[in-house]
Design a protein around this nucleic acid. Structure first.
Lengths: 108, 108
DNA sequence: TTTTCATATGAGAAAAATATCATATGTGAG
DNA sequence: CTCACATATGATATTTTTCTCATATGAAAA
């Protein structure tokens, strides 16, 4: 019988961290936007229509897990993706979502 | 400038649902285990070392989003994966996790 | 049938994640 | 140096998720 201990605990918990990070709408969108170009905190505020503090807190999470990195330029601090691998997961998920939605259109 | 509205809202929110489901350790493990074989609630209780009610509640989530389906056999109710696509996301995530962990070993 | 076993479910408690508010920090402009 | 602006951060408040407890349901065994 399969046992949970067969799953490498470390891999499992690392996977969890990633999933947790991606499970928040704001963070997911941030990564999606940063895929296209680096953005400052205030740009993200505008794009996401959120308060500065909330944006900074979420960016702090992404930074903590090294999914993004920062660089000051002029007055602002610009965030960029640090981990292109994550995009594979995001894109795969969005593709999946797309399939599900299409599937449901012809009556599921 | 990129705008969040460029992201198809439906796809985004469907993606969120998936990520939310996968972000919970119990549910993630359940899917991982069910990948290998159908399991009854009590088997899952044992494997995950959790209470019956908690297990059932989490299974209900997975059922609601049609990630698993059920079939009675004898006394027990067996759960099986209903959406093999999800596995791609799980596997991709675990691969990623594995890479990250390996990467960190030689000092990141 | 009645009983028993496995599972489901609703309501509320407990825990975790997120947002808000107030304030600190750091950099460039003047 | 002082000010103003952009961002970070700590301490709660709020919201969301998850668990627990009690009880319901439904099939199978007796």
């Amino acid at each position: 019988m399969a046992n949970i201990s067969q799953i490498n605990e470390k891999i499992l918990s690392e996977s969890q961290k990633i999933m947790k990070l991606l499970s928040n709408k704001t963070r997911f969108q941030m990564l999606y936007l940063l895929e296209q170009q680096p953005l400052s905190v205030s740009q993200l505020m505008d794009l996401l229509n959120m308060e500065q503090s909330a944006v900074s807190h979420q960016l702090a999470e992404l930074r903590q897990y090294q999914l993004v990195s920062t660089k000051r330029s002029g007055k602002g601090i610009y965030y960029r993706l640090n981990d292109p691998h994550i995009l594979d997961i995001i894109n795969e998920t969005m593709e999946h979502a797309d399939h599900v939605l299409r599937g449901k259109k012809h009556g599921e």
